[in-house]
Measured scan of single mutants.
Amino acid sequence: TRVETATETAWISLVTALHLVLGLSAVLGLLLLRWQFPAHYRRLRHALW
């Protein structure tokens, strides 16, 4: 049971790290898009909202 718990903890930390990385890359990508294509971003936002 001790090994299982350790594996579970490792998986949880791995998944958390993955989610953090994905979230950060998504935010960075959005910022980059907004910085590179302001007109396109505004049009996209206008279409979405």
Rank of each mutant, 00 (worst) to 15 (best):
T9S: 11
A47N: 07
L28C: 07
H19K: 05
L28M: 14
A6F: 00
R2E: 15
L20N: 00
V21M: 08
V15L: 13
A17L: 11
Y41E: 07
R42L: 13
W35C: 10
H19L: 15
A39Q: 15
L30N: 00
L22H: 01
R45I: 08
A10K: 04
T5L: 03
A26F: 15
V15N: 06
V21N: 00
L30R: 02
A39S: 14
R45D: 03
L48N: 01
A10W: 12
L22S: 06
V21H: 03
R43V: 11
R34I: 11
A47D: 04
L22Y: 04
L24F: 15
G23A: 15
W49V: 02
L18S: 03
L32C: 09
L28K: 03
V3W: 00
L33G: 02
L20S: 07
V21C: 13
V27T: 09
V15H: 06
T5W: 02
Q36K: 12
Q36P: 05
A10I: 08
L32A: 12
S13R: 06
H19W: 15
G29F: 15
L14V: 10
V27F: 13
A26H: 04
A10Y: 05
G29A: 13
V15D: 02
E8N: 03
S25N: 04
S25Y: 06
S25W: 06
H40G: 13
H46R: 09
T1H: 07
A6G: 15
V15R: 05
L14Y: 03
V27R: 01
L32P: 06
L24C: 07
T1A: 13
G29C: 13
R43S: 12
R43H: 06
R2V: 15
S13M: 07
L32T: 13
H46A: 15
T5Y: 03
F37K: 03
L31G: 04
A17S: 09
L18T: 08
W35D: 04
L31M: 14
W11I: 13
E4Q: 14
T16D: 05
L28T: 07
T16H: 03
A6K: 10
R43M: 09
V3R: 00
H40F: 14
I12Q: 06
R43F: 07
R42W: 07
W49C: 06
V3P: 01
L33M: 11
H46L: 07
L44P: 02
Q36F: 06
T16Q: 03
V3L: 08
E8R: 03
A26N: 02
V15K: 08
R43I: 09
V27P: 01
L18V: 09
Q36S: 14
W11L: 08
L28E: 00
W11H: 10
L24K: 00
V15T: 07
A17N: 00
S25M: 07
R34C: 12
R42Y: 15
T7E: 07
T7I: 09
L44D: 01
R34E: 01
A6M: 12
R43K: 14
A6S: 14
G29L: 15
T5H: 00
V27D: 00
H46S: 11
T1S: 09
F37D: 04
L44M: 10
G23K: 01
V15W: 08
E4C: 03
W35Y: 08
V27M: 08
T7M: 15
R43G: 10
V3N: 01
H46T: 09
W49P: 03
F37M: 08
R43C: 09
T7R: 08
V3T: 01
H40R: 12
L30V: 10
W11F: 11
W11N: 05
A6E: 06
G23I: 15
T1E: 10
L31E: 00
L28R: 01
A47G: 09
V27K: 04
L14M: 10
F37T: 06
H40A: 12
T5K: 02
A26E: 06
A47F: 13
W35V: 07
A39Y: 12
Y41R: 06
F37R: 05
L44Y: 07
A26L: 14
R43E: 08
L14T: 04
V27N: 01
T1C: 08
W35T: 09
T16E: 00
A17Y: 02
P38I: 11
R45W: 05
R45C: 07
V3D: 02
A39D: 14
R34F: 08
A17H: 01
F37I: 09
L20F: 14
W11D: 02
L31V: 12
L22N: 00
T5P: 01
F37E: 04
L44K: 04
R45Y: 06
A39L: 13
L18E: 00
V3A: 02
A26T: 11
T5G: 01
S25Q: 07
A6C: 04
T16A: 15
I12E: 02
G29R: 02
L30W: 09
L32E: 00
H19R: 00
Q36T: 10
L22R: 03
Y41W: 15
L20V: 15
R45F: 07
L14D: 05
T9A: 11
R34K: 14
T7N: 11
R45S: 07
H40Y: 12
S13N: 07
G29M: 11
R45V: 07
F37A: 06
L24W: 03
L20M: 11
L18M: 10
H40Q: 13
T9F: 09
H46N: 14
H19A: 15
S13Y: 10
A26Y: 06
I12C: 04
F37C: 14
L24Q: 02
L24R: 01
H19D: 06
A6W: 06
R2Y: 14
G23Y: 03
A17R: 01
Y41Q: 06
S25C: 13
W49S: 06
I12Y: 09
L33A: 08
E8T: 09
T7F: 05
H40D: 06
V27A: 08
A10R: 06
Q36A: 09
A47T: 12
F37V: 06
R43W: 09
E8Y: 01
L33N: 00
S25E: 00
W11V: 13
W49Q: 06
L44C: 10
V21G: 08
W49E: 02
A26G: 10
L33Q: 03
R2D: 14
E8M: 00
L32R: 01
S25K: 00
R42K: 13
W11R: 03
L48H: 08
L31Q: 05
A17T: 10
V15Q: 08
G29Q: 05
E4A: 08
A47S: 13
R43A: 08
A10H: 07
L24I: 14
L22G: 09
Q36D: 00
T16V: 15
L32G: 05
L14E: 03
L31N: 02
S13D: 00
V27G: 11
T1L: 14
P38Q: 14
A39I: 13
L30C: 12
I12P: 01
R34H: 04
E4R: 08
H40N: 12
L18Y: 05
L30E: 00
L28P: 00
S13V: 11
G23R: 02
L32V: 13
T7C: 00
L48I: 15
A6H: 04
L30P: 02
H40C: 13
I12L: 09
L20Q: 00
E8L: 01
H19C: 15
L31I: 11
P38W: 11
T9P: 13
R2L: 14
P38H: 12
I12V: 12
L44N: 00
A6V: 05
L30D: 02
S13W: 15
L18F: 12
A39T: 11
V3H: 01
G23E: 05
E8D: 13
R2K: 12
R42F: 06
V27H: 00
V21Q: 00
P38Y: 15
L14W: 00
P38M: 14
A6R: 12
P38S: 10
Q36G: 13
A47V: 11
L18I: 11
Q36N: 12
W35R: 09
V3I: 14
S13Q: 10
V21F: 12
Y41F: 14
L20Y: 03
Y41S: 12
G23L: 15
H46I: 07
L44A: 12
W35N: 08
S13C: 10
A10V: 09
R45Q: 06
A17D: 01
L32K: 00
A39G: 12
W35G: 07
F37P: 00
T1G: 04
T1F: 10
L18P: 06
V3S: 00
P38R: 14
V27E: 01
L22V: 14
A10S: 13
A10C: 02
L32D: 03
T16C: 13
V15E: 01
L31H: 05
R34V: 09
H46W: 05
V15F: 08
Q36M: 11
W11C: 03
R42A: 15
Y41K: 01
L44S: 03
H19V: 15
F37S: 04
T1R: 07
T5R: 00
F37W: 05
A17V: 10
H19M: 15
I12R: 08
A39R: 12
T1W: 07
I12T: 11
H19G: 15
S13K: 05
W11E: 04
L18H: 00
A17G: 09
H40K: 15
A39M: 13
A39K: 14
R34T: 07
R42N: 11
T9L: 10
T16R: 03
T9C: 04
H46C: 04
R45H: 06
G29N: 02
R45G: 06
L33H: 01
L32M: 11
H40P: 10
L31K: 00
G23Q: 04
V27C: 09
A17I: 12
T9G: 12
L32N: 01
T16K: 02
R2I: 14
S25T: 11
E4M: 08
H40I: 10
L20P: 04
P38E: 11
S13G: 14
P38D: 10
F37G: 02
L22W: 05
R2Q: 14
P38N: 12
L22M: 09
R2N: 15
V15C: 06
W11A: 01
Y41T: 13
L28G: 03
L28S: 05
G23N: 03
L28I: 05
L44Q: 03
H46Y: 10
T9H: 11
L14I: 08
R42G: 12
L33I: 12
R34W: 04
H40W: 11
S25L: 11
L14P: 02
W35Q: 06
P38K: 15
A10D: 05
R42I: 08
W11M: 09
S25I: 07
E8V: 02
